[in-house]
């Protein structure tokens, strides 16, 4: 189990996270929803040390790491338990699709080269991009780049994969293929924390939905609880607004 406890983060005077705690069971898919500026992305960045939290801990089983005072060693160890999929893909521009996955295994996780090669090819095949393995990111569509990003995270076999708005930067027609791949990751039983604005996707794959607003967890529960019987006024308003927009777009 992964236990995130009392995470706080401020940028100067602006408090972005005010005491956020979250439990994630093994194999669970947790989707974090909330308006922009609610601290969803910052939470993911704090637990992967891309930002230094002002307070809080993350525990993988018995291994508790202080998010504020973690040493370089703690950080490296924690990051090696995690995979991360970025909103803007962040593929290595000077590496092919294959090398993007392979590099992480060899330079990041010290997997022997032969094994890394097999794993990288397998992961690319799994996201349906084996025929694009020698393509550079510049030659791939946004959806393909994000699938490589997912392959890069999955190949590492982390204990949890963090998805930071993985489809927000994509053209609408490419969102579907990417969500399909993320659904397959979920079906594989990999523990996931997903920050997204895709409501129907959240409803489909989430075991648990966490609604955040103003740097706090307002409400959490099963998709059914949250979407059909939200308890908190703020959750209701948010859903009404999003689903309202949804209807408007159609």
């Amino acid at each position: 189990m992964i236990a995130i406890r009392n995470v706080k983060k401020s940028f100067g005077k602006l408090s972005v996270l005010q005491d956020v705690s979250l439990d994630i069971k093994e194999g669970e898919v947790v989707v974090i929803l909330g308006p922009s500026g609610s601290g969803k992305t910052t939470l993911l960045r704090c637990i992967s040390f891309l930002e230094r939290a002002s307070a809080g801990t993350i525990a993988f089983g018995d291994d508790v790491v202080d998010l504020k005072h973690a040493s370089k060693k703690d950080i490296l160890r924690t990051r090696r338990r995690e995979g991360f999929v970025f909103q803007s893909y962040n593929l290595f521009a000077n590496k092919t699709a294959f090398e993007n996955v392979y590099e992480g295994l060899v330079s990041g996780r010290k997997v022997p080269k032969k094994e890394a090669k097999e794993k990288a090819l397998e992961a690319l095949d799994w996201v349906g991009l084996l025929d694009r393995k020698d393509y550079y990111p510049a030659q791939l569509s946004g959806g393909q780049q994000q699938r490589v990003g997912i392959a890069r995270a999955v190949a590492l076999e982390p204990e949890v994969i963090l998805f930071d708005e993985p489809t927000s930067a994509l053209d609408p027609e490419l969102v579907g293929e990417t969500l399909e791949v993320i659904k397959r990751v979920a079906k594989r039983g990999i523990t996931m924390i997903v920050v997204t604005h895709e409501m129907s996707f959240a409803q489909d794959v989430a075991d648990k939905i966490v609604f955040m607003d103003g740097g706090v967890v307002v409400e959490e529960g099963s998709p059914n609880d949250i979407f059909t019987h939200p308890k908190e006024e703020r959750t209701k308003q948010f859903l009404k607004r999003i689903i309202g927009e949804f209807v408007y777009e159609i």
Partner: peptide
């Protein structure tokens, strides 16, 4: 000139900062 996101991606696949610099940032 090299997008910082690539550095973030490199350290998150488990590279230390020096390796991330050497393998990803420096060549670009």
């Amino acid at each position: 000139s090299v997008d910082h996101g690539q550095f973030e991606a490199a350290v998150l696949v488990g590279m230390d900062s020096l390796t991330a610099f050497r393998r990803i940032i420096f060549p670009q």
